[in-house]
Amino acid sequence: MDGNTMLELIDLRAGYDTVRGFVRAVDGVNLRLKSGEFLGIAGESGCGKSTLAYAIMGLLRDQARVESGAILFKGRDLVRASAEEWKQLRWTGMAMVFQSAMNALNPVLSVGEQLVDAIHAHRKVSEAEARAMAVEMLALVDINGDRLKSYPHQLSGGMRQRVMIAMALILKPDLLVMDEPTTALDVVVQRSIIEKIAELREKLGFSVIFITHDLSLLVEISDTLAVMYAGKVCEYGPARGLFDGPLHPYSRGLMNSFPSLTGPITRMGGIEGRTPELLALPPGCRFAPRCPEAVERCREAEPALLPAGADRSCACWLHGETR
């Protein structure tokens, strides 16, 4: 591993213990993120993106757990980290922004209190200094310092998400994990948030893992892209390359589909059918039952994620060097 690597996932498996068995929502994911890199992860809902994000943050709870594999953060394996080590590391080394800021902010505490308590948890500073830091951070996301006294419900959706971003960045972490940070927002606000993130990354130099089901959005803003399907990465490579020509039929479907603007009733424009039940996966390629190009072989054996041209890889029998 070169010194420039921020995060490396090695054959990571994670999922949920249920009465019907272990649901492996993340199934052998290998990814590498360089310092300052913007990695986008795309995939339909239910593909294991959130599970992956939570695993990276060490926030899997209740029935969820990492089954095997390694999460190397700056060379340190976090899978084996103690609760105390995680506590030290989170928010100072890596922070997370959730899909719904409304749910991620405590409704009965003011924005200021919630920003300041994060500072106090890790830094020995006075109340006044902490407040000054909070005001400064809010200014970075274009929110006036008076808003410290506001409660979450008094802010607009876009403002709440910006507060959430300020909160995540308040201790200057090296890695920012964002799980569908703009899905709940309307298109205009979505755009402004994304521009804000790009601007802040420029300024502060953190790496980003940006998760969304909207692939067309990701190709514009990411350096690198990973497309996930049913717990596995099916295509990985520079965003540019994926934009010019997606290799995996699933990526192509995602590129052509429009995320629903009217709410949770998503209709995938490009892909028929729905994601498979993780406890009853089809034999062969997991995408084969929905794939317009599937051939005999796709239904018999599962393709591995293998190099397919310059720094790209793809898990499909019809593409790359597996052909």
Binding site: M96, N103, L105, N106, H122
Partner: peptide
Amino acid sequence: AEDYILVAMAKGLPLRR
């Protein structure tokens, strides 16, 4: 089970808080 509890844990707040 709310997200804000998860955020609070992620922020490393003292459990009592």
